[in-house]
Amino acid sequence: MVGSWTWSRRLTFYIPLALFLIFLLFPFYWMTIVSLRPTTETVSGRFNPFWIHTLTLENYQFLFTDTTFPEWFKNTLIVATASTAVSLFCSVLAGYALARLRFPGSNFLGVGIFLAYLVPPTLLFLPLAQVIARYDLFNTYWALIFTYPTQLIPFASWLLMGYFRTIPKEIEESALIDGSSRLGSLIKIILPLALPGVLSAGIFSFTLSWNEFLYALVFMSSGPMKTIPVGAVTELIRSDVLGWGALMAVGILGSVPVAFIYSFFVDQYVSGLTAGAVKG
């Protein structure tokens, strides 16, 4: 009896689900309430820490007036948008080639791209810092716009490859017979049909770029060039206790854009995961 409020249903379904929700959402609840009350209240020890006594926006105001948060936000937005664009461009072409064209080394390249997805930033950041230094890219957007796609292209290519393969070959073949060029049929016929896949790959790329930490930490050391996660961790953690309100506020503000995007595309994300991770 799905959905009925019997006792056994409560015990085996709603109570476990509630426990999961409390565990998974508590840190966000905590960050929200700390960010919305004066930090003096948080540290006074006179109030129940799980609730707000005095509601205030002063922590958020502080971020915008007394820190370089607006700069960080702009940097993160620029880097995430540009890396997503670069990655989608490369991945559409690579995904199409791997899905549709037979050419020497295609199997090898397919495996290579999959393995690239498994290369973690921690393995490469030290030599990569040397490369970035050699090309004089430290503290420029390019340092991240060139390096983020190495993490994004592999997943996006595999995901798109899966989508391209679901499109019947006959549609494309008839366009080719009608005189369309290969690239023309990719742009006019394949791409529109694979739009959900492109959207999933785009969402994935954007959030991963938005969230990235290690490369941004190493390559963007100048204050106004930092991204939100790096700026928050390196400049807002203070030794005195009064920094907590602003720290939690930046945590909330930096999370809202990706949370917002996902709340609309959660189903896309699930189907994208299966297309990429399972079918791939």
Partner: peptide, 25 residues
């Protein structure tokens, strides 16, 4: 849908930022 989107949050928000929440917890 709201429940599914909510449980995804720890995975999709920037880890460095949610870790700040844990740092205070």
């Amino acid at each position: 849908n709201i429940v599914r989107a909510a449980v995804l949050l720890p995975w999709i928000v920037p880890t460095a930022l949610s870790s700040l929440g844990w740092l205070m917890i």
